[in-house]
């Protein structure tokens, strides 16, 4: 059981992106972050994932009601985003080995579901953008993390890919806290709650 508590987050770049933002999301819940381009969706997601520090405020992780040290937050997070590229000189399986450690049965199965099995030993530089997006999603789900941060998970996916994405989301939702930064109506609908940045 994980709870992500954000309190009084503020961040400014060239302009104020958000100020005094607080929310709390626990296992089994989901939060959508919406807003126009440049409104700070990705920034907020990075702050939630602990890879960026806010100007003020903080994000605290609680695992079974015990606080998690910031140095270990990484272990609780699966993260897929357009700005997190996978290694194009490695194959899908090698990317998984690098990120997760091993390729187990779940990994093989997931690659199969995502339709990547025939190409799992091909370097990603020969993949299409849609296939690379599937690899990124596979990596995020395979980590079996308690918190899932997805930035525009449906981008570059075809209809079948999106169906797979939602079935995967439905499957992990009961055991996972999900954050999705998106403007896609379908993905917004999936989340029970949402924040709109402006």
């Amino acid at each position: 059981m994980v709870t992500v508590k954000a309190s009084n987050l503020s961040k400014r770049y060239t302009r104020m992106l958000f100020r005094d933002m607080s929310f709390s999301v626990a296992t089994g819940q989901s939060l959508a972050i919406a807003g126009p381009n440049g409104s700070g969706k990705s920034t907020l997601l990075k702050i939630i994932a602990g890879v960026m520090t806010p100007d003020s405020g903080n994000v605290a992780y609680w695992y079974n009601d015990k606080p998690v040290d910031t140095a270990y937050i990484r272990n609780y997070i699966g993260f897929a985003a357009p700005y997190i590229n996978v290694y194009k000189y490695l194959t899908a399986l090698e990317n998984i080995t690098f990120a997760i450690g091993t390729v187990d049965d779940d990994a093989v199965q997931l690659l199969d579901v995502l339709g990547l099995s025939p190409h799992s030993n091909t370097m990603l530089m020969f993949y299409s953008t849609g296939m690379i997006q599937r690899v990124k999603l596979a990596l995020a789900f395979l980590k079996k993390a308690s918190v899932l941060c997805l930035d525009e998970p449906g981008s570059n996916l075809d209809e079948q890919g999106k169906r797979v994405l939602f079935s995967l989301l439905e499957k992990v939702q009961p055991t996972t806290a999900i954050f999705i930064a998106t403007n896609d109506a379908h993905e917004l609908n999936f989340c029970k709650r949402s924040i709109v940045l402006d």
Binding site: V51, R74, I77, F79, I84, N85, V86, Y87, K88, A99
Partner: peptide, 13 residues
Amino acid sequence: EESTALFGVIHYP
């Protein structure tokens, strides 16, 4: 250049 830095950072210290 290939924006893979964050990929490393989210998995390893």
